[in-house]
Amino acid sequence: MFLIAIYAASGFFVLLVLLLFASLVKGSWPALAAFGAKFLWTSEWNPVTEQFGALPLIFGTVVSSTIAIVLAGLVGILAAAYLAEFAPRWLARPLSFVIELLAAVPSVVFGLWGLFVLAPFVRVALAPSLQHAFGFLPIFSGPISTGTNMLTAGLILALMILPTVTAISREVIVAIAQDLREASMSLGATKWETVSRVVIPAARVGIFGAIVLALGRAIGETIATTMVIGNKPVIAASLFAPSYTLASVIANEFTEANGDVYIGALLELGLLLFLVSFIVNGLARLLLFTVLKGDRA
């Protein structure tokens, strides 16, 4: 009886996913028919002329997520290693707790903070000093006219996914067998050598899984990005220029969209996000499942 209920429930969810997919395809059909694959690599996003190309949005999504994953990856792995291996217990516990709480903060709150605190800071302090030091790089060149730009979005996203990277990496590192650490120390390795040469490499699959999972969140994040990225469908080399992402276009424009092609184009963006998130999250969970033996993923 119980088994039948389980099968029925899982069948129901599979059906739901298929239905979602089917309705996305159906709804975006006018755009699919009008633009075909060209949708993916043309840059004009113009509701007035009904020309829709997603390239600037794909660009904005990829670049903001990349900034986020690089920063959150570096900081998160170090933080996880610190919490798991170096921090004294009385500090590690409350610190891990706070980090996990950070993951529970609603993204609109991150967005507000990003808009009113981070964006001004980026405009008057961070961006000018980056330009001063590394202005010869295209990504740090160009005018700094606004604080709501690609850099601010990347930073906010990094902050938002940092708890995911840190918490899961910490868990993976803690799960590495103690006798590997002891074997390394018994050969005369220091604690730091042990962590960097033995423990983190042994945890690498799980850490990679954590990063991919966080990447999935960064790609799909909507409201916070919308609030700080500037919302202009342009492709610029400079991180100080405004940008736009797949998710924020949908959030901004769905209320005013009219006409089958416009609505179809927005739904096609949704379809794109759906497929990418599905693949990225599936990969992450697969990796984490093999590492943590399923007790989390």
Binding site: D179, E182, A183, S186, G188, V198
Partner: peptide, 21 residues
């Protein structure tokens, strides 16, 4: 302690080669 551990080696109950090496 590092010098000591290099002079006094240890083998453990469960074989524990470093898995990524």
């Amino acid at each position: 302690v590092i010098e000591l551990r290099r002079r006094v080696g240890m083998v453990f109950q469960r074989p524990n080669p470093f898995p990524t090496m």
